[in-house]
């Protein structure tokens, strides 16, 4: 039983990061119908900026976190203004390919200062894990879950309780209608990218002590985030959160109770099963077409 709880705790830790990735993907998808294949690189950028601040510079973790979030936000806004905005009226496939291009370029740029070697981000809290029987919980796990939940709540409050959030939702629901009522949709696009990128940067600096740092690290999280978004219902923020946590826990349980050979393929299996069984995901609505 305590092994099960240990696995669930570990699944919650990694799942909360997948949830943040999925949330960022969903925000951009809802605003501009773009699947942002460069979202993993926003996570990677945040992780590396956090690393530089926390390790060589030895600044406190909160400063590293803020710098990571700011840098990813700036990067995301720059991508939206320079790459996405000029292509906004092009087919979705073009926009998706543009984000693939951004992904490759950002990874390449990261290799210039950091090379391709793998860096290690030390635990934010160096306290030893707590053992309760066979149940193991580390302070790092608790901190990651608490921060990820706090960030998710803050994003929900922003979307549902602020004027900017209402404008984002209005633009998501009806682009032309939003323009007609005077919403600056360009600003909304940038804001959506800024919020999604900030979440990505935060996820990066939280993921850094859990995993290893290298320029391609975003790809793994992108895949898991994508699976989470599909499971929750692509376009539904709550679904993204639930999907991320579900995938995190599921992969730990599958690995421990079935086979470690199945861990990495489980997200692909989830995507395929959801597409066949419930294409709209757990929280998504089926598409209704007026005829």
């Amino acid at each position: 039983m305590s092994e099960l709880l240990t696995l669930i705790a570990a699944g919650l830790e990694v799942g909360s990061l997948y949830a943040l990735m999925a949330l960022g993907l969903v925000l951009i998808y809802r605003t501009q119908s773009i699947v942002n294949f460069a979202h993993g690189e926003l996570l990677m950028a945040g992780a590396f900026v956090g690393y530089v601040a926390f390790q060589p510079m030895s600044w406190p973790f909160p400063v590293a976190l803020v710098l990571a979030v700011l840098s990813s936000t700036l990067l995301g806004v720059a991508v939206e203004r320079v790459v996405i905005r000029p292509l906004v009226n092009h087919p979705h496939a073009t926009l998706a390919m543009a984000t693939v291009g951004v992904s490759v370029a950002v990874r390449g740029a990261a290799r210039l200062p950091f090379g391709s070697d793998i860096l290690t981000f030390p635990p934010i809290i160096s306290a030893a894990p707590v053992f309760i029987g066979s149940l193991v919980i580390s302070a790092q796990t608790v901190l990651t879950i608490v921060l990820a939940v706090s960030i998710s709540v803050a994003v929900f409050l922003l979307i549902w309780k602020t004027r900017l959030g209402r404008e984002i939702r209005a633009t998501q629901q009806n682009y032309l209608g939003a323009k007609v009522v005077g919403i600056n949709t360009g600003k909304i696009y940038s804001s959506s990218w800024a919020v999604a990128s900030a979440i990505g940067g935060a996820a990066g600096v939280l993921a850094a002590p859990l995993t290893l740092l290298y320029p391609d690290m975003g790809a793994t999280f992108l895949l898991k985030g994508f699976a989470a978004a599909v499971l929750g219902g692509f376009g539904n923020p709550l679904g993204a959160i639930v999907g991320g946590i579900a995938i995190g826990i599921l992969e730990k349980l599958v690995g421990a109770y079935f086979s470690t050979y199945l861990i990495e393929i489980s997200p692909y299996v989830i995507i395929i099963v959801v597409v066949f069984v419930r294409p709209q995901g757990l929280f998504g609505r089926g598409q209704i077409v007026r005829v």
């Binding site: 859990l210 290298y214 690995g255 861990i263």
Partner: peptide, 9 residues
Amino acid sequence: DRKVTDAVS
């Protein structure tokens, strides 16, 4: 697997 995020399982 290569480039895993963790080895908890």
